[in-house]
């Protein structure tokens, strides 16, 4: 900034042009957060956490649009066939989304994030909750659109298995330190659950309609959440 070409006179000695440029650049280069980020910042009482939240891969537009498309297809299929397909699909979608809220594998600056004042664990917690909430809302919307008659139990019932599957996906992701592993595990676990439900009671929807499964789901969810919490307590050092 102080390079001068011979034709340009020198600034007065007591005027700090460097400082002037910095104050200009500060305004020109600054990023103006959108209303969503500002609101999130106020709610979370932390602009940094809000920014980290809104840069979650699974909360970005492409991901959300894909989720909506998948759930919409499920809703259409449900209306057609009477099978609660939304209820079966939503947990898998949510599980994948939750896994991709996790750092390693998705966050290239992972090690740096581990040295931040806003801890990576806090970021993960807020992201996971937000992703879960968003997917629950999308799923509910798809269910409501395709609900028919006595499907109320199914419309909301799948939220519980979804919690379990999400917690499982997150636990695997944090233990294996890989978002991909978590997503794969979550989707696979859900498929297995649905298929075993089919084998056990003859219909696909058993996984979401059999209320006696709810307690085991919640228990699994709690255990997996505890595992995820423990796995993120101390980031592993074997990063060679």
């Amino acid at each position: 900034m102080t390079d001068t070409d011979p034709g340009v006179p020198e600034a007065p000695a007591d005027v700090d042009l460097g400082r002037v440029w910095i104050s200009v650049a500060a305004q020109v280069w600054r990023r103006q957060p959108g209303w969503l980020e500002r609101t999130a910042g106020r709610l979370l009482r932390s602009p940094g956490l809000a920014r980290a939240l809104l840069t979650t891969p699974s909360l970005l537009l492409p991901w959300l649009l894909t989720s909506i498309a998948v759930l919409a297809a499920g809703a259409a299929a449900t209306t057609d066939s009477g099978q609660p397909l939304v209820a079966l699909v939503a947990p898998a979608v949510a599980a994948a989304a939750i896994a991709y809220a996790y750092g390693p594998g998705m966050d290239p600056a992972w090690e740096l994030s581990c040295s931040m004042a806003i801890s990576d664990r806090m970021v993960l917690l807020v992201r996971a909750l937000a992703v879960f909430a968003v997917n629950a809302v999308l799923g509910l919307a798809a269910s409501a659109v395709s609900a028919s008659g006595a499907a109320a139990a199914v419309t909301f019932g799948w939220l519980i298995p979804m919690t379990a599957v999400c917690a499982f996906a997150l636990a695997v992701a944090t233990v294996a330190r890989s978002a991909n592993a978590g997503a794969a595990a979550g989707v696979a676990a859900w498929l297995i659950t649905v298929l075993s439900g089919r084998v056990a009671s003859g219909h696909f929807a058993a996984a979401v309609t059999d209320t006696f499964l709810f307690l085991p789901y919640l228990a699994i969810g709690a255990v997996c959440a505890a595992i995820a919490l423990y796995a993120t307590r101390i980031p592993r050092g074997t990063l060679r």
């Binding site: 340009v8 006179p9 042009l17 440029w21």
Partner: peptide, 11 residues
């Protein structure tokens, strides 16, 4: 532009 003109404007 700043680099070229800020000096003489300052003077």
């Amino acid at each position: 532009l700043f680099g070229r003109h800020a000096s003489w404007l300052a003077v």
